[in-house]
Design a protein around this nucleic acid. Structure first.
Lengths: 242, 242
DNA sequence: AACCTCCGGGTTGTCAGACAAGCTACTGGT
DNA sequence: ACCAGTAGCTTGTCTGACAACCCGGAGGTT
């Protein structure tokens, strides 16, 4: 196995981790089975054992494997990839696409307005600061799966910014302006009621609410997102581990 | 800083990671601030840089820090520890205690019965296998916070097992019989309705349902747990990251 | 036959030093 | 005021070695 044949990635260990994830999900090793030792893997990928260890630590942090001193690395789960992994921060568009469904979104409103007190606090902006507030529904294969209320500080955008240019993923919008959200502090709630959402939606539905504060790598808050997922239309999964 | 003064842990890097977590949560470095470099940390703890790197990868996998090539390690969040971290698999008792509340539980029923078809499939046991099924409510400071339906294969316990000995945490019960759950494949749902739970509970409440299949390190399913958390009585948090 | 102790091979954890690759901030020029 | 180049710091990867640990088998005892 040559390194070049692996997919792209920022670091060598990340590419190897990605390849190992694929091999696990393809069923090359069944749950409970022992993976090759670090020495064998380093020979196979022709990298140092240190690099292999970094990749294996990535797998373990995702709950796919368990590595134990003196024993080896065991595969624990291989089915978790079908569902949206709550630990991974990615755009809703990518999340839906990963499930093999066609993502889409319909903006209901896009407006610049003064920030509310809660927003001022959570976004750490000055009083009276302006924000870009959007309301949109997210669809998968043309079925509405979620309603999202998002808020971005006006200061992120240049002076000549035109709200009407907003379209598609907010992650992409942020990155077009040089801002990259890497962490999101998330609260998870359950709720229901007819006041949630708009348009065509199930009667008496339950909603899974993800209340998120997105920040860049320096800890500066760059966006608030409150997303209501319609129960039953969007599988949320997670691999928990010790 | 001497290694001996750090808390206990299976490995050196785990002890250092735990210490760094404490230092982050204590506010020694504010979000956005750069932590000392790996070389400085290895000198401080008097361990090799490889060990420090392992500890830092643990922090990053928890979303507490972001490490970037050529730049350093930045602290991103320090407030996430107040809430239950969904990524960490631990007993409900420990989770409640971590929030500074007094955990308790009331068993409503404990019974041995034949496994249902769904249970046979999820637990990978033979048809007609027996299971231990329990219903219980979980309390924090005497307030009911969740209802849990749990199922454990009969085969986990010895022949002379007496269901009436069941009490306290199911994790502890499993470990008393030499079984250690290390991974849980979890589905997250929102639901509501008066048919959920029993006894004193809010009218028209929403519930966050965690549907989990617990497995040991060899991938063998050892328990099913369906836990309904009463919305508003139990904060669920998560640090998502790229 | 059943049980126990010891031991050896295989595996991960840690160590040390070195070089490559990437980022930031400053310097010096235009 | 602006821009290119660079020095210095930081993380990523490499190499080789030894320590700590786990499992299963050999050999002995009961």
């Amino acid at each position: 196995m040559t390194v070049e044949s692996l997919g792209s990635g920022p670091t060598l260990s990340a590419r190897i981790a990605a390849d190992l994830r694929l091999r696990i999900e393809s069923g090359e090793w069944t749950p409970g089975e022992k993976m090759p030792g670090e020495h064998d893997l380093s020979a196979f990928y022709q990298v140092s054992r240190a690099t292999v260890r970094t990749a294996l630590q990535d797998l373990e942090s995702r709950g796919l494997t368990v590595t134990r001193h003196g024993l080896g690395t065991l595969v624990t789960a291989q089915g978790g990839s079908r569902q949206a992994d709550l630990r991974r921060l990615e755009s809703m568009t990518d999340t839906i696409a990963r499930q093999g469904r066609l993502p889409g979104m319909v903006y209901r409103s896009i407006a610049l307005r003064a920030a509310t007190e809660v927003e001022i606090s959570k976004l750490a902006v000055g009083p009276g600061a302006e924000v870009l507030a959007t309301e949109r529904s997210l669809t998968a294969d043309s079925e509405t799966v979620a309603f999202s209320y998002d808020v971005i500080p006006r200061a992120v955008f240049p002076a000549e910014f035109d709200p009407s240019e907003v379209s598609g993923s907010l992650f992409a919008l942020l990155e077009r302006h040089g801002v990259r959200a890497v962490v999101a502090l998330t609260e998870i709630h359950a709720t229901h009621g007819e006041h949630i959402g708009w348009g065509d939606r199930p009667a008496n539905a339950s909603y899974l609410l993800l209340d998120q504060v997105h920040s860049d790598s320096r800890g500066v808050p760059v966006a608030l997102a409150s997303t209501y997922f319609i129960e039953g239309r969007f599988p949320f999964g997670l691999v928990r581990h010790r």
